[in-house]
Design a protein around this nucleic acid. Structure first.
Lengths: 214, 214
DNA sequence: CCAATAAATGAGTGTTCCTCACATTTATAA
DNA sequence: TTATAAATGTGAGGAACACTCATTTATTGG
């Protein structure tokens, strides 16, 4: 970690000028790419805004035209990652022919999520920071909720009427736990991490099975 | 959050002078109390080292005699909280007469942990920061491992030989998930948080039951 | 072509964490 | 007790950053 200088955080606007011209859009992309690379190399805490600007080939002032502060860059990267993940999940579980098939696909998603996180340092680092930025934390929760809803919607037809609310809570919780499990797994030694993910997948299958009649 | 200035983090020593004299020990306590209060009032990010020193009634230099940096204070508070929690857990599950009784006690611990976290702003805030400080993250993992081992040891007699390694992983994972579940529950609206904890407790019981013959 | 608007720029400002050379107090030895 | 060593106490100031803003340059639309 390390604690930040962010004082007037409630005062500062969350977004700045939206790039409308082509040139500006390209710059924003270059900034994100540069930030992403630097985070991969040194970790987000060690990344200096001047470095990001330098690598992106833009002056520091331009960077602040589009991002209100350093955290906003991490946020943007995190949001993009979440969007990609959500799409993967949505694609995987839409139109499932049966509950059993849904279970298998969700299982595969968890495994894939682990594999991706293992070799994407940026993801790792940003996930780490998730809990320290209030906006990111809120985003993370909304992300889990949205993913949970996807799973819920895909399976609710198989769940007893009386259990629906509890099943919805369970889906939400499991999505949040998937993040925890994967972060824990990549933080420990590889062999142990693999074992933890195996257990987590079993937990997911078992908990969903508790609601759906497989 | 906000990101910090911590550059030479690997260079800086993790501990400083250990207070041996009575006066020094009292000062360290006063610093921790002051930090704790300020975190409760404004959140750790907004706490300034000068404020901590001022409220503790010590000059800034003295503060740095005992804490190498700001994060170290949070770390110390977190460690103390973890120690208290671990003691509670250890007391609760030692000498359990049966697996069923152990399950009930663990269930109560989770509920108590939620209740405590709900009205201890310091705990909330520090837990938030957990993931952003590498040392704290490591401490958190070790804490989960230690707690997991406690549960494992208390119940291993009831588990089949072949399942022992998997059960150990599950205990570790569940301890880490308890933190996630509670943090999520206190972050959302109260009624939903309560529901989430109910589901989590069910998950814990169900997963442990999967290994022990109740 | 000429406003009006958007974008670009980078030296400088302000804030914060933390250091360090020196002063003072406490413990230990003679 | 007195001398010496060790531990503690101090706070002005250094250094590192994040971020600003007055000015200049480019783009758009009428």
């Amino acid at each position: 970690m390390t604690l930040p200088p962010k004082l007037p955080s409630s005062e500062r606007t969350l977004t700045r000028r939206q790039p409308t011209q082509k040139r500006a859009k390209e710059r924003v992309e270059r900034i994100l790419v540069a930030a992403s690379e630097l985070i991969a190399e040194t970790g987000s805490d060690a990344v200096r805004m001047t470095e990001v600007a330098a690598r992106a080939g833009v002056p520091i002032g331009s960077l602040y035209q589009y991002f209100p502060d350093k955290a906003a860059i991490l946020r943007m990267l995190a949001v993009r990652f979440m969007e990609r993940t959500r799409e993967t999940l949505a694609d995987a579980i839409k139109n499932v022919p049966s509950a059993a098939e849904a279970l298998e696909r969700i299982d595969a998603i968890v495994e894939g999520y682990y594999a991706t996180s293992l070799d994407e340092p940026v993801v790792r680092d940003i996930w780490s920071g998730t809990q320290s930025d209030k906006y990111l934390q809120a985003l993370d929760i909304e992300d889990s909720r949205a993913n949970g809803t996807l799973v819920f919607d895909a399976l609710k037809a198989y769940v007893k009427e009386d259990d629906l609310q509890r099943f919805e809570a369970a889906c939400f919780l499991l999505m949040q736990m998937a993040g925890t499990a994967v972060r824990l797994a990549i933080a420990v030694e590889r062999a142990e991490g693999d074992r933890l993910i195996v257990e987590f997948r079993r937990i997911v299958r078992s908990e969903i099975s508790a609601f759906v009649s497989v």
